[in-house]
Amino acid sequence: MIKIEGLTKKYGTKPALNNVSLELPRGEIVGLFGENGAGKTTLMKSIFGFIPHKGTITLDGEKITHKNIEKLSFATCEHSFFPALTPSAHLDFYKEHFPSFNEKRYTGLMEFFELPKNRPLRTFSAGQKNQFEVILALSQGADYIFMDEPFAGNDVFNREDFYKVLSGILNDNETVILSTHLIEEVSDFIGRAILIREGEIIGDKTAEALENEGKTLMSYIKETYHYRPDRVGKALSDIMGEEV
């Protein structure tokens, strides 16, 4: 389990995360939702130790260090692959550095997405780069797979295929933490929704709890964010100077 306690991060004087506490048990597919700048990426980067922060983050009771960090993988829209390397060279690199690397899954996903194996990543399209980024994260052999806006630039068919494949290949002890704005698309796929706003967790519910309450993910998010449906009409009316 990943346990986060009192996580606080500031960029200069601006708080990015404010005393965040969270538990992420194994075997969950967690959706992390929030506006741009809400703190989703900062939360993920803090867990990996990429940025300095206050508070404690543990993985199975131990601090996350180089000894256990291989249990975490990261797919980011910024991409973490090596642009000059081919997928085949990445395979060698990952096999060398990640002993639990799942080559069978890697090969299967590469074939599914029909990605070229011997072309440098820098020559790939934006969508292909995203696909490869996610393939690496899923194949690393990690227990916790963090995905930060992994499908930015992918078409809807690709994304839909991906959700199906993802829900089919995950083991019971694998956890996916998915940060995305594509709420409707992932609503059937996630088991828990965490809402973050201005660096604070403002909502955390399982899909089961939402179902019992008769709410959809979208309605839960709108309710938690105090979404005002009349806002657009008012704005248009102000701009156009007439009743819309």
Binding site: F48, F50, H66, E70, H79, S80, P83, H97
Partner: peptide, 13 residues
């Protein structure tokens, strides 16, 4: 071209 630093910082060594 990417943030491969994230991969390097996740290595066991």
């Amino acid at each position: 071209g990417s943030k491969s630093i994230y991969t390097m910082r996740r290595l066991k060594n």
